[in-house]
Design a protein around this nucleic acid. Structure first.
Lengths: 248, 248
DNA sequence: AAGTGGTCTAGACCACAGC
DNA sequence: CTGTGGTCTAGACCACTTC
């Protein structure tokens, strides 16, 4: 807060601003409270609005703030813990998972990385199931599940006008297979236009991308690409997953 | 400004720019190649430099680009898969892990969240060990490991002028304990000044924060906070962790 | 209509790498 | 030194929500 900073210079303004704001959030604000608007904040701290926004972006990335166009900036609640690895080996769609089927279709083209994981040529058809995950009343993740069509011979019929019903049919057929195992990767990504809409965020919002491969009969049978909101989610793994805030 | 775009408007320029650049990276550039500088690129696409930078930031976040001040922007190699969950239950520092001890000290103050995980009051002393993880010759993660001092009675002596030696001593003492289990969380964060230096990034760079809690004797004994470079790392979990990107 | 955050511009200067 | 990316400014307009 000093005035003369003779040799503390090399620290960028937005970085210093961020720490000041972060401390203020801890001491002077409570969850859900709305902050002054960006123009006022910038004026108060004597910086350009762009600089103030750089600090706010960092804080939003860390899950401290939530910004909504047309509304304002509010103090975000602590990140929600979502269980990703239920030690038990089960297919997606098993009873008790937190996902809701949205739609399904048989697609001829899949992203190249997914095709590689499935050990299929990019042109061969696969079932594509879109699902949604909700926690504490808020959407936390969107998913695209790819299943080899030849693994579900009884499910080759795409009939039914209801997209959600088709999705449930594919998921139900999966449960009959033996599951040898699964492996997972987690990386940072940015939300596609569709995922963003499903997650109630803007396109490009940071997401944690969880890629799960399911192995059955000695070969990869399904691949799930789940995108979690990085600002509001904390992924939990292991035995006693997600103690602080979790439903059941 | 260029021509009339009557109804293609709602897509932000930087978003469109990002997809154009992404396609160009796939088709016209190879890994390691350097791109034209930002001023030239901005001029070529007819946008302000700030807008061009917004697109580049997204691509860097997705691990497609690498930018270094004073050098330039290069096409990044595919993300490195790093194994995080070696199904085997072992303490940090067990033979065969990929971490290098850097230093250790006995600290009286620990971050509040860590103290809570350790079920210690924020004031009680703990061992703090800093470690570094290197993969493919590049630093990929920095870690702070917190260990209850009362769990390592034989290690109460902080002697030794060599920081790395002290770190090894703490890790070695850990191995003698029984390990009941461990649980983990993954979330998005931004690099602190120290982590940034260790990771060869700028402060605030996006990182994947892995928090691991080790339980011994029925109570939490150690907590590791590992920060992985989000731009270059893909965390892998499960049995067949981290098989190289290409399957031939 | 008013107020918010989101996008965009055209400049300027700074910090750093390499010659 | 030159050239690069990083920071910062002061303004403008747009998209959205709310009243």
């Amino acid at each position: 807060m000093g005035t003369t900073q003779l040799e503390t210079a090399p620290e960028p303004k937005y970085w210093h601003l961020k720490t000041v704001l972060s401390d203020a959030l801890d001491t002077e604000f409570s969850v859900g409270e709305i902050l002054p608007n960006e123009r006022d904040l910038a004026a108060r701290f004597g910086v350009a609005r762009a600089t103030l926004r750089q600090a706010l972006e960092q804080l939003e990335l860390e899950g401290r703030l939530q910004r909504r166009r047309g509304v304002g900036t509010t103090v975000a609640p602590p990140r929600v813990g979502v269980a990703v690895d239920p030690a038990r080996h089960t297919w997606p769609g098993a009873t008790g998972d937190d996902w809701q089927p949205v739609a399904a279709e048989e697609a001829a083209t899949v992203p190249a990385p997914v095709a590689r994981l499935l050990e299929r040529a990019p042109g061969e058809p696969v079932h594509v199931v879109r699902r949604s995950r909700v926690s504490a009343g808020r959407p936390v993740a969107a998913e695209l599940l790819y299943v080899r069509t030849d693994a579900l011979p009884g499910c080759a019929d795409p009939a039914g006008p209801d997209p959600a019903a088709r999705a449930r049919a594919v998921l139900h057929a999966l449960q009959a297979l033996d599951l040898d195992g699964q492996d997972r990767t987690v990386e940072l990504g940015s939300a596609s236009a569709e995922d963003a809409k499903q997650l109630d965020r803007l396109p490009g919002a940071p997401v944690l991308v969880v890629t799960t491969r399911y192995v059955s009969g000695g070969r990869p049978t399904a691949v799930a690409v789940s995108t979690y909101r990085a600002d509001t989610c904390r992924l939990t793994f292991g035995e006693r997953a997600a103690e602080p805030v979790l439903t059941g």
